[in-house]
Amino acid sequence: MAERIADAAVTTRGGRVRTVLFALLIPFAIVLVWEGVKFLGGDPWRIQNVLGLGVSFEHRPPLRIGMASDLSLPHVWEVLGSFFEPVQRRSDVSLGQFLVGAALYTWREAALGFLVGALLGLTLASIFIHSRLLERAFVPYVIASQTVPIVALAPMIVFAFGQGVLSVVIIATYLTFFPVTIAGIRGLTSPDPRALELMRSYAASRWAVFWKLRLPASLPYLFTALKISATASIVGAIIGEGPGGIPEGLGRAIINFNQQYISGPEKLWATILVSAVLGILFFSVVRAVELFVLRGRALAAG
């Protein structure tokens, strides 16, 4: 048996290398398509003094595609280069530094909202699985809460709780708790009926059944929801920063660079890139915790 386990490990390791290679291939492919479209239908561009040889290279695309213009779709190198340029004219801070700071700020709000939302979601699920009455009475409202667009709700939350981090965290919480509630109800009721009978034969208290059986059994479901919630919490924080009046985060940066789009589209693109990377990083953190917590289980292998 030890051999079979070792074999499985080798297979997984080989699979992992392939996964990483494939994962690196995707951004490369995106850049290729991006620049390919611009090469065919973008604005003309030239490189002065190629490799210091004193020659300049100019490219005139054969077609005209509106979407591929420099305003709609800046060159990849311009977006990447913008990270090293000052965030505003005569500023000491580069765009990259500014965006990393803004991302960290937004992440702190999102993480707070994520934690509060996860706890709220799990608490609601725990209450609902123990009381059919409360479940029937309240779950429709939990669902209804998610059909109200957050852009409509955000100003109301800010009006109620005042401008500031608190309102932003509440908005992030609002987007986070729902998947956890629904997955929690499913997960906490997932144990095999015989496992519940086993606990009954031990005369285990509800409390013991919850901690020793229901909660551990629900973890694969909860982590699926938490991964959704991780990215949702960042969206919530970014949206909330506008009405919430938070100048330090990505939300305000997106609003500002949107207004300055004509003069520097690459800045907005850079901000979107950073937001996406932030989402992926937060997701990956939750995934890493999942792998650690679910180690040993069959489900964790995937």
Partner: peptide
């Protein structure tokens, strides 16, 4: 007797908790 934990139960399926060793 059940509340006094007088008996142990074994089912057809082992019903082991897969998160425990």
């Amino acid at each position: 007797a059940r509340l006094d934990r007088d008996y142990g139960m074994v089912f057809q399926a082992p019903v082991l908790f897969d998160w425990r060793t």
